[in-house]
């Protein structure tokens, strides 16, 4: 029981971090039906910005917030120069561009910070917050889950209460009609990219702030796979679905590792891919998605 609880807590913690990256994927997908394969790398770069700023003496939360802004600006630039020129319904060139970004950003980070693990500053108090049923819940776990919920809540508010948020949802819902009510589609999607990058950067920073992890240029490669399956589980166009999906994937991952001894640890990534496959095959709209998957 104690072990079970511990695994559940670990699962929730990891899952929250996946959920934040998943939300970033969902934001872009919702609006453009494009999966940004470079999302994880953009987030990794953002987390490195934060680390660098912190090493230069900026207080750690200040560093994270500045790097969120920097990532948002970078993403806005990427959207404007590399994404907008292409026909959104023709997927191949867009996939190629995001894969090019994937490769390029990863290499860039490797050139600047080398492929070495770096300690990331602890964003949350260290130590155990409380225990239930003998399982320890660290402050990191508590704060990570809470952050995910708070961030999603604020995103929700932003998208439903602000003018730009409403415009973004209008563009996601009906491109043509949104033009006909006078929304400038380009800048609105650019806003979505910026928002996604900021959320992704925060997610990556929180993920690598885990005391048992460190940051290196390859850190997000697997996280992106988990996040993508989380997003798919949630339906790819639902924010809260992404959170539920993230937690779900985190759960499955940590419980399988513990209770299915025939599935070795290395295969937790495979479970994510299998979940992805099964969901897309049998329930293409995920469990919270609104639209059918056939938006190809």
């Amino acid at each position: 029981m104690q072990l079970f609880l511990q695994r559940v807590i670990d699962g929730l913690t990891n899952g929250s971090a996946y959920a934040l990256v998943a939300v970033a994927l969902v934001l872009i997908f919702k609006a453009t039906t494009l999966i940004n394969f470079a999302q994880g790398e953009q987030a990794m770069l953002g987390a490195f910005f934060a680390l660098q700023l912190w090493m230069w003496g900026v207080p750690m939360w200040g560093a994270v917030i500045i790097s969120m802004i920097l990532s948002a600006l970078l993403a806005a630039l990427i959207e404007r120069t590399l994404i907008r020129p292409f026909d959104p319904s023709d997927h191949l060139p867009l996939v190629i561009v995001t894969l090019g970004l994937f490769l390029g950003i990863n290499a860039l980070a490797g050139l600047i910070w080398r492929f070495d693990p770096w300690r990331f500053p602890e964003l949350f108090p260290s130590g155990v917050a409380f225990s239930i049923g003998g399982a320890n819940v660290t402050w990191y776990a508590v704060c990570t889950v809470l952050s995910a919920i708070v961030i999603l809540g604020s995103l929700q508010l932003l998208l439903s209460r602000t003018k730009i948020g409403l415009a973004f949802r209008a563009v996601s819902s009906n491109l043509e009609s949104s033009q006909l009510v006078g929304i400038r589609v380009g800048p609105t999607l650019q806003f979505g990219w910026a928002l996604a990058a900021a959320v992704g950067t925060l997610g990556a920073s929180i993920y690598v702030a885990n005391p048992v992890l460190s940051i290196e240029p390859t850190v997000m490669l697997t996280v992106l796979v988990f996040a993508a399956s989380a997003a798919a589980l949630g339906g790819l166009d639902s924010l809260w679905g992404a959170l539920a999906g993230g937690l779900g994937i985190g759960f499955i991952q940590s419980l399988l590792v513990q209770y299915a001894p025939f599935i070795p640890t290395e295969l937790s990534l495979l479970t994510a891919v299998v979940v992805l496959l099964v969901v897309l095959f049998f329930r293409p709209a995920g469990f919270f998605g609104t639209a059918a998957v056939e938006r190809v």
């Binding site: 439903s160 409403l166 009609s177």
Partner: peptide, 22 residues
């Protein structure tokens, strides 16, 4: 536009709000 042209995922009220965008 032909064939409605509402925003299906937005609520009725949000549709009206978006309508007032300009």
């Amino acid at each position: 536009p032909q064939g409605r042209g509402t925003f299906p995922e937005l609520t009725v009220e949000e549709n009206l709000r978006v309508g007032a965008y300009v």
